[in-house]
Simulated assay, not measured.
Amino acid sequence: MAEKLHPKIDHGLPKESASFSGGTLVCLCTSKPVKVKIKGQIAHNHACGCTKCWKPDGAIFSVVAVTPHENVTVTENGDKLKVVDPSALILRHACTQCGVHMYGPVERDHAFKGLDFIHPERFEEDGWSPPGFAAFVSSVIESGVDPGRMAGIRAQLKAAGLEPYDCLNPVLMDVLATFAAKKSGALPA
């Protein structure tokens, strides 16, 4: 039986459009929804199994991407947003009524500083870059997934075209390691 990984994976990955220049993320509220304008195409979109990211009901994974912080503007009902965990690296701003994480800036000294994490399936528009890999796959066990299901979950991710990693993909791991090496002096800054 197929797992419910995420609606944007289970029903086929969305199609990217070269003409996509951004759009509006909308929370789940039917009255006074929070709206966040995103300028430009997103980057590093992936399925995420961590226990911190917002997931649609019944989904094992979230779908999350990044965009530069300067490309994010709250346009409606920002008074409904609250940071989920002020001590976390990603300051996830969630709607206090429906719970959707609308954007999450990284503000502290980190390789991802200046980026905001978003859930692109909340775009009103189509054409955003689809997920390209799966990260923190083993972490779904921490959310209650039986470890015996993991081989099937990994196989299903691969069949969808998403290479499963138990951390980030190699490109992003290299970014993190380079940042750490420059900070420690092992590489020139």
Rank of each mutant, 00 (worst) to 15 (best):
S21G: 15
M1Q: 11
A151M: 03
A186I: 12
A88K: 01
G22W: 06
C53P: 06
G114Y: 05
T51G: 12
H110T: 07
A180Q: 13
G12Q: 03
R154F: 01
A186C: 12
L25K: 00
K35F: 08
P56L: 14
K32P: 01
R122C: 14
T178G: 15
M150K: 08
N71W: 06
G114A: 08
H46V: 05
R154V: 01
L115S: 14
I60N: 04
R149V: 09
P68W: 05
A134M: 07
T51N: 14
G12K: 01
C95R: 09
Q156P: 10
L176I: 15
G22I: 10
C98Q: 07
E142S: 14
Q156K: 09
D126Q: 14
A151R: 07
H46W: 00
I153L: 09
T30Q: 15
A94M: 11
L5S: 01
H101L: 11
A134L: 05
C95L: 15
M173H: 01
Q41R: 11
L89R: 02
I118L: 12
I9P: 01
K35H: 14
S87R: 04
H69Y: 04
A181N: 08
D79R: 12
G40C: 07
K183P: 04
E76R: 06
L5R: 02
V74M: 15
D79L: 11
V83D: 03
H69S: 15
A189M: 09
S21R: 14
V34Y: 11
L157N: 03
S31R: 14
H110N: 15
V66Y: 02
E124C: 08
G152N: 09
G132K: 00
W128M: 13
W54T: 10
K113S: 13
K8Q: 13
K32Q: 14
R108G: 00
I42S: 11
L25N: 03
E107P: 00
E3F: 11
S139R: 15
H6I: 06
V34C: 13
G23Q: 04
C53R: 09
L91G: 03
F136T: 08
P68G: 07
S143P: 12
I153A: 00
C50Y: 01
V100D: 09
A111H: 04
G78K: 10
S21N: 15
L89E: 00
F61I: 11
D10N: 08
G114F: 03
G152M: 12
G161K: 04
A2T: 14
L176W: 02
A181E: 12
T51M: 13
G127S: 13
M150N: 10
P33A: 11
V106R: 02
A94F: 01
C167F: 05
T178M: 10
V26G: 05
S17H: 04
V64G: 07
E163T: 08
A59F: 03
P120T: 04
H110R: 10
N45R: 00
K15E: 15
P7N: 08
G114T: 12
L115M: 15
R149S: 08
C98T: 07
T178S: 13
V137I: 05
P86E: 12
